[in-house]
Structures are given as C-alpha cells and as structure tokens.
Write a protein that binds this DNA or RNA. Sequence first.
DNA 1: GTCTATAAGTTGATAGAC
DNA 2: GTCTATCAACTTATAGAC
Lengths: 210, 210
Amino acid sequence: MPAANAQEDATADGGQDSLPATAQRLLTGAIACFASKGYQASTTRDICNEADLSAGALYVYFESKEHLLFELVQRAHRDVLVALEALAPAEPGAEADLLVAQIRTLTHWHVDNHLRARVAQTELPNLRGDHLAAVRRQRTSIEALLRSTVVAGCESGVFRCADPQLFVRATLSLCIDVIRWYNPGGHYGADDLARSNVDILHTYLQHAGQ
Amino acid sequence: MPAANAQEDATADGGQDSLPATAQRLLTGAIACFASKGYQASTTRDICNEADLSAGALYVYFESKEHLLFELVQRAHRDVLVALEALAPAEPGAEADLLVAQIRTLTHWHVDNHLRARVAQTELPNLRGDHLAAVRRQRTSIEALLRSTVVAGCESGVFRCADPQLFVRATLSLCIDVIRWYNPGGHYGADDLARSNVDILHTYLQHAGQ
DNA sequence: GTCTATAAGTTGATAGAC
DNA sequence: GTCTATCAACTTATAGAC
C-alpha cells in the first residue's frame, strides 16, 4: 500500500501515473468539490477555482465535466484492484490469511482515501452509459477476486459459507461503507475498523451453519 | 409491517399520515425523479411533471425543493423507527430473538421501499443544516435502539461482542446497503437478503472472540 | 388550486486575446 | 496553456390570470 496520508487524502492518484501536473491538480480540486457538494452541485468554475485556474482551463485537459468524473472514478477503482492484486496468493488450506489480508486492504484503502472513495462510490450514477459500463467491469473484477478466495476456502474445507456471492457483497458493504462513518478526527482509526470487519466476517466463515 | 409492494415501491408514505393528496403525488413524483437522476439533477419542473402538475404548483405545498426533500427523508426515517418500535421487547436472556427481528425488519423495509430508501440515504447531504440535524437525531435513535439490544444481550450473557458500537454500525451497513445491490427482477429476494444478514451478524454475536 | 409568463441568476462549454 | 468574454440554455422561485 502507498504511504497515504491517514488524516485526509485528496490526491487524485496513487502516485503511479502519467498525467500532466495541471490535470492532477484539477482532479484533486474536483475530489474536494464533489466530496463536499456532490457532482451536480459542483460547477466547472468551482473545480477550476479549487485548482487555482480560471473558468475555461478545465477543457484543455478534459473533454467535459463528465469525462473528468470518469477519470477520477476509474482511477480509484483501478487503485483498489492493484492493491488487492499485490497480495500474495493463498496456499491451499491457508485461504483465511488471504481473505483477512483482502478485508484489511479494502478497509484501509477506503479509510486512507475516504474522499476519493466517497466520490467514486456516490457519484457513480452520474457517469455516461459507456463510462459506467467500464467501471462496472472493474467492480466485477474486484468482486470476482474476493469470491475466488471464499470459494477456494470452502473447497479446501477451512470456510463454511451458505452463499459465497451474498457473503462477498456483505464484505464489500462493510469495507466500503466505512467511508460514510469514518471521521478523521473521531474515536476510531483505520486499524479499529479493519479489525472489526475482519472479526465479523471471518467469524462467520469459521462458524456458519453451526 | 405494512403490505408494501415487493416489486417496487414509490409511494411517499407508509399509509399513516395526513398530507393533501396532491402533496403526496408530488412526494411520489419526487422519489421517482431523485432515485433516477439525483436531487440536484432533478428540476422542480421534472417533479411537477411526474405528478401531472404544471411548473409552479409545487410551491403551493412546499416552501422549496429542499423542503420537499426534507419531508421525504424525514418520513422515511420515521417509518423505519416506527417499524422497529413495533417489535416486542426482549425478555432478559432472549435478546437474540429481538435482534434477529430487528435485522429482518431493517432489511425487509429497505428492500420493500428501496426507492425511498435510496433517496433517503443518498441525498442526505443536500439537506439544509437544521433539516440535516433533525434527520441525524432520527438516525441516532435508530442506532440507539439496536445498541440497547446488543448491550442487553452482552450483559445477560447470550451475546459476545468486542465493540457494540462498531457492531451496530456494521449491522446498519449491511441492512441498508442492500438498496445498492437489490434488483427487483434479480435472483435474490428480500427473504434471502434478510437471512444472509441475520446469519452473518448473529453468528458473530454467538462466537466472537473464540 | 392550478395555470402561464416571467424575473433574475447560473450553468457547461466555446472563441479569441495574450 | 492560460486568460477573459460570451453564448445559449436552463434553473428556482414569484406574480397574476382564471
């Protein structure tokens, strides 16, 4: 995982990309705007202002306000996928370690990038049809990664699970929904939330149907 | 629970209120608009149109577009609270029955009213300061109801739970997040989702820390 | 109570100076 | 590449006819 600012991250990239510095500033400004007022209520002027640019400059780097949103949402999902794929694959019979790592990674990523994550989750319906379809494919990949861990664990006998599909959705619900609760100045930190999610989900897989 | 339409509910009220029929129609139209396009992207003309009224008629019944949203969100939360308060209180030592009923009620309500629920959850940040504060109080009441069940169960020894506060948040995450997954024509019904949520959450309370 | 007309302001996006 | 100026369209909310 990148050394993300645990207090509040408003950067547009995990640090592994090639986008003009000004475009990055626009993405960062857009995250701040969208997170506080929502996509529709944020004007292109607001975004340019946040990036210390004037009204028309946005259109040098992005075809439209919607293209900017797509870039932002698409990169957030890509970064989650990259973080999950960086985890060591599971030895047969040791799927619990991988699943715990996946839950921890997901929770930490969403807490550490809670502004980007909130925008990426909340403003999804504002994407154009083909852009939405592209992000849906990324989301399907993330779901598939988790499901294969759960299914493998069930087959090797270390997990019990009535319905892996519903369990994976519950996992994503818990790990993503922290962006709605999480408050950087609050009582709970990323570790607390990750531990809670691991406890609840892993306990189920150990004791389901008993 | 009221006999809600399990396919798709777009009515504005649980059936227990005193609002002019035209105002109800406006609320119902607003739910359809907000659910499909979002609050900011829905114009007052869209809403009036959906209610078979002309441009200015909205302002006879609501001070502003934001007041209409508040009415809608506030009523959704009130109905959830009413449904939870209708459950029989727990005998000491039998808190599991109440918690299971609460989880089932929450999941079913959000599935049966998934359009209203989606609007009430998603468009919350568009409320004015004082209106948002009022809804936050309702949400605190819902959280407190669940927490008292969990805490009572821990004290009577039928539950184990490392942190009731985090567990209640996880419960709400799971029961509410179904509005993002749920598809009326899809493979899973309200009963499936409720059973899955009960399984995951109750299994944890029975086996936590073992 | 519902309608049409309109006010007053804002929007996304473009054109052309520098 | 960035700026300012501007377009055409659309927004919420109000006023006054019926």
